[in-house]
């Protein structure tokens, strides 16, 4: 049995309330997805199980769960609070958004959501955070140009494996292009779309890092990772994807990490939750 879930809940609750209030103010609607759903190959993460000769996934990745539940083309600007399991009974609590479809152009969706991340972290008193932006399109361009195996390349990049890249049977130019992109990190990148996002956010916390590659294969191009030098784990991340031909962007924050970092500013005790 897990210990101390009650006091952990108080910590998560304080942080969640602040973020939830901000999302409501920004016109996001809260969604509640079932903890368990019938297995589908589209569902990522979660714990697979069987019941009455049917296969299910418990607490899967929320974006893939939401996308598999949508039955018509419509604009959705939603947020959720959910525990997500990592293939084992071990999970982490996340709060996140998904902005699907609608008339707002993709670039503006991404900018608004990055500004929302910044506002959340500032409201929680978390300073010195960074937001890295990467691009799967840049990797696809190299893969297509040199006819490389996408799965092999992505596996190597996700682990930043120099050894795996070195042992790939590919032309030297292709290897050089892959290594060059992996090491590309800076304030700008000569890509108008990405530089435009960074310019619009206009904050020193933004950084281009093409080594940023998120785990889920539904991402289409822009991905972000949020972190601080004051914690060894990512605060969160997100990315751009396409659903029914509509541009979408979403991000998720790790409530466990946020509650650890915010505990100094918000206080550790239960006193803050009093209605007095």
């Amino acid at each position: 049995m897990y210990k101390d879930t009650v006091s952990n809940s108080f910590k998560l609750g304080r942080v969640t309330k602040i973020i939830r209030d901000m999302f409501y103010e920004l016109d996001y609607s809260e969604i509640f997805l079932p903890a368990m759903d019938r297995y589908s190959p589209e569902l990522r993460g979660g714990l697979k199980t069987a019941f009455n000769n049917e296969f299910y996934v418990i607490k899967p990745d929320v974006t893939s769960h939401l996308l598999s539940s949508i039955i018509k083309e419509e604009e959705l600007k939603v947020f959720y609070v959910s525990e997500v399991l990592d293939g084992t009974p071990k999970g982490k609590w996340q709060i996140g958004t998904e902005w699907i479809g609608g008339k707002v152009v993709l670039k503006d969706k991404i900018i608004e959501q990055i500004l929302t991340v910044k506002a959340i972290l500032k409201a929680l008193g978390i300073a010195d955070f960074m937001i890295d932006i990467g691009s799967l399109r840049k990797w696809r361009e190299i893969i297509e140009q040199y006819h490389l195996d996408k799965k092999t390349v992505y596996e190597a990049i996700e682990k930043r494996s120099i050894s795996a890249m070195g042992s790939m049977n590919i032309p030297g130019k292709a290897r050089g292009a892959l290594m060059g992109l992996l090491q590309k990190r800076g304030k700008t990148c000569d890509d108008p779309f990405i530089d435009g996002i960074i310019g619009a956010v206009n904050d020193d916390c933004m950084m281009v890092d093409f080594g940023t590659l998120r785990h889920f294969d539904y991402y289409d191009d822009i991905v972000i990772e949020i972190y601080t030098r004051n914690h060894g784990k990512m605060l969160g991340g997100g990315g751009q994807y396409v659903n029914r031909g509509q541009d979408c962007f979403g991000f998720a924050l790790d409530l466990g990490v946020l509650s650890q970092l915010a505990s100094e500013t918000l206080g550790n005790s239960q006193e803050g939750d009093s209605n007095d």
Partner: peptide, 10 residues
């Protein structure tokens, strides 16, 4: 290598 350190101590 830690994922955050790879960025903060690039």
């Amino acid at each position: 290598v830690n994922r955050v350190s790879q960025k903060t101590k690039f």
